[in-house]
Amino acid sequence: MRILVVDDDALAGEMTAAVLEGLGHEPLLAENGVEAMEKLAAETAIEMVISDLNMPLVSGIDLFREMRAQGINLPFILLTGDDPEGPRQQEPKLDACLLKDFSLEESLPEIIAEVLARHDG
């Protein structure tokens, strides 16, 4: 599955991408919300977006809202370095919000499967 990874920290983005690759997915990287919207417009095969929350200019939540406003209904997983409860309350429509830590390798596959199941159902 082609997944767009949005993170302003290139290393953090690569890290997420590496985990996704390990799961057999094909990650695509964007460094900010603007680039993400461009990639979404240009590439039709993207099936999911995984974005960092805290980015300069456009935050992960802004990106999510912009996507929905433009009618892009792809599953959206938000990553954050803080307590994920905050963004969850701020934007209840998010498919999932995850804490960025070293357990990402284990937690991400589960969440992706869960989100996909919900979207397909």
Binding site: D8, D9, L11, A12, M15, T16, D52, N54, P56, T80, G81, L99, K100, D101, F102, L104
Partner: peptide
């Protein structure tokens, strides 16, 4: 602020808890 936030997030992502 951005630097500290980024180190916190990425540091934790890589499992460097003390640094995070």
């Amino acid at each position: 602020h951005r630097f500290l936030h980024s180190i916190k997030g990425t540091g934790n992502s890589f499992g460097f808890k003390d640094l995070g």
